[in-house]
Design a protein around this nucleic acid. Structure first.
Lengths: 145, 145
DNA sequence: GTATGTGCAAAGGTTTTGCCCCAAC
DNA sequence: GTTGGGGCAAAACCTTTGCACATAC
């Protein structure tokens, strides 16, 4: 289920020279168990159910650490605040301009294309995000109806 | 030069039922003349050179209006705040993880692909953003050197 | 003339920071 | 025992809002 479960997070953290604290483990578990696309405040609220003393600043600091060790990734899905997801195989997002719903889809555009772009601009590409905006079926119906 | 110059902004605004105020024209000119990827505060500082009384809230409100009438577009290039650019032909961004430099490139991946994705997920796609992250030539040199 | 837009100041929400104590190593 | 990490509160930021006045139409 969790993308990181093959290597426990404690190990990943220690290998990166960071300490494996219960807060860090909890925050990552929270992201795993409650689905992706959570923002800092949502992670905070959910995690506090298990650890009522957790502070919001710890959530932010942990997010930084988890980003740094490459376990999670920051998303900018819509105009609002930052959201996070566990780093997995490249998938991308369709965001409905009507209701805000996010549909994930697997990377369909060729590795070759990205490789060519890297060559052309002398740029070593380490990640690709394709965001599509538009209207989902329900919103289109509402609008036409 | 400016993408909107074919139709003056005043006309676009009026056609959308909004008033064409000097502030709105100035803010769009500022984006045009100073290049894209500006954030609200940068637009504010630059525009105030010509109109010292301009307020930051007007910049934010104007950004909303210009987005609404489809003249500019919001970008989420990096972790920081929102940036804006004049809406033109679809181009995408390579963002250097080292120095933050942004390279623009034209949409090279097939319209067909996007069309197929829309069909598959029953989603009417109105816009596509491809963001590539990685390292530019200079940063790679610095890192290896 | 009227409704929409602006400036100002204040509020709101998100994210960061300083400081001191605590716990992972 | 050290050093990095956490909690708390305050600050810093970015963005939005309320209100009274101004101005585009």
């Amino acid at each position: 289920m969790c993308a990181f479960s093959a290597t426990p997070i404690s190990k990943i953290l220690r290998q990166a020279g960071r300490r494996a604290t219960p807060q860090r483990v909890l925050i990552l578990e929270t992201l795993c168990e409650n689905g992706d696309h959570l923002n800092a405040n949502e992670i905070y609220s959910l995690a506090r159910r298990k650890a009522p003393c957790l502070s919001l600043s710890t959530v932010y600091r942990t997010i930084d650490v988890l980003k740094e060790v490459g376990v999670i990734e920051e998303l900018h899905l819509s105009g609002e605040c930052r959201r996070y997801e566990i780093k997995g195989e490249g998938h991308h997002h369709m965001i409905c301009r009507g209701c805000g719903k996010v549909i994930e889809f697997k990377c369909p555009f060729s590795e070759g294309l990205i490789h060519d772009l890297g060559e052309k601009y002398d740029f070593e590409i380490t990640g690709a995000h394709l965001d599509l905006r538009g209207y989902c079926a329900e919103c289109r119906q509402k609008m036409s109806g």
